[in-house]
Amino acid sequence: MDNGNQKVAIVTGGSRGIGQAIAMRLAADGFIIAIHYASNHDKAEESVHAIRTVGGTAIAIQGDVGDPHDVARLFRQTTHEFGRIDVVVNSAGIMPMARIEVDNLDMLDKTIATNLRGAFNVMAQAAAQLGDGGRIIVLSSSVIAKSFPGYGPYIASKAAVESLVPVLANELRGRAITVNAIAPGPVGTDLFLEGKSKELIDHLAKLAPLERIGKPDEIASAVSFLAGPDGAWVNAQVVRVNGGYA
């Protein structure tokens, strides 16, 4: 398919929450969007429909970011449909709560498989597929700095993802491809809100100087900056979009 000069972005985890907001914002910025989703076909199609309703172009592609074959197919199908890939945003992730206890090793493995192995798979395919001047953006988390009980597997996975960012930026030297991470603070999504009491949510909201929970659109705005022309000189960075939550 010939799209002229219109750029194409892949957004993993783009069917809901922050990923959906990112997909919608990049579509508004003029990108064609390939929305990756893990299992919720209906939610992914809702995102595609919303983009098409406002005149954009989008498709939904199912897969497991932890499976290298699924990730390769995501990139292959996007290239087949649209002829190019310019921006890759890895927003897919899970956040199970599990203390560092002998019975929770399976939760660590599950979290690492999606959050770290998934990020590695997506970053590796992006490195192989993007042309010069491309953008790679991965989602981390500002909770890394908090060391809350029960967040061990999640924090470990996201800290490892952050460590990959400058390494890949150096490995892509000479190709004008930027590699950055966005580390949101608490954001009002199902992923964050699930299993939390109102008291806990209110407490977490008060931790930042701005004293509120973030909005998915605010994270999407930061991604838009990194993906657009104004973000061209930002590379190998972790941008903490968190209202001062530190």
Rank of each mutant, 00 (worst) to 15 (best):
I177S: 05
V223G: 01
I18M: 04
R52T: 13
G66K: 02
M97Q: 06
I136R: 02
S47H: 04
D2R: 01
V179T: 04
G150S: 06
L105G: 05
V54C: 06
R84K: 13
I94N: 01
A227Q: 05
G93V: 09
G228T: 05
Q125S: 06
V165E: 10
S157D: 08
D42Y: 08
R240P: 00
H49Q: 12
N3W: 11
R16G: 01
K7A: 12
G185D: 13
R173C: 12
F148L: 15
E199G: 04
Q125D: 11
D230Q: 08
A124H: 08
I22M: 04
H203L: 15
S142N: 10
I137S: 07
V179D: 08
I112P: 00
N104G: 04
F75Y: 11
T178G: 02
N40A: 10
L168Y: 02
K146H: 15
I182V: 15
K198T: 08
D2Q: 06
T57S: 07
P186N: 13
I136F: 15
V122W: 06
E199R: 03
A156V: 13
V138W: 07
G214L: 11
E101W: 07
Y154R: 00
K110S: 05
A236N: 01
A60K: 00
E45Y: 05
A60S: 04
Q6E: 15
H41Y: 10
A27D: 09
S47A: 14
Y154V: 03
S91P: 01
D109M: 07
V239T: 08
L207V: 09
D217H: 05
G150W: 06
P209F: 15
Q20Y: 03
R52C: 15
R73L: 13
R16E: 12
P153I: 13
H41P: 00
D86L: 14
A44T: 03
G131E: 15
L210V: 14
K158I: 09
N170C: 13
T12N: 03
K196Y: 11
T114H: 02
G185A: 12
I35H: 01
V88K: 02
V102Q: 09
V143R: 00
S15G: 06
A127R: 02
G4C: 08
A208F: 05
I61A: 06
W233T: 00
S141T: 13
K7P: 02
G244H: 10
A127Y: 06
N40E: 14
N170E: 15
I32S: 05
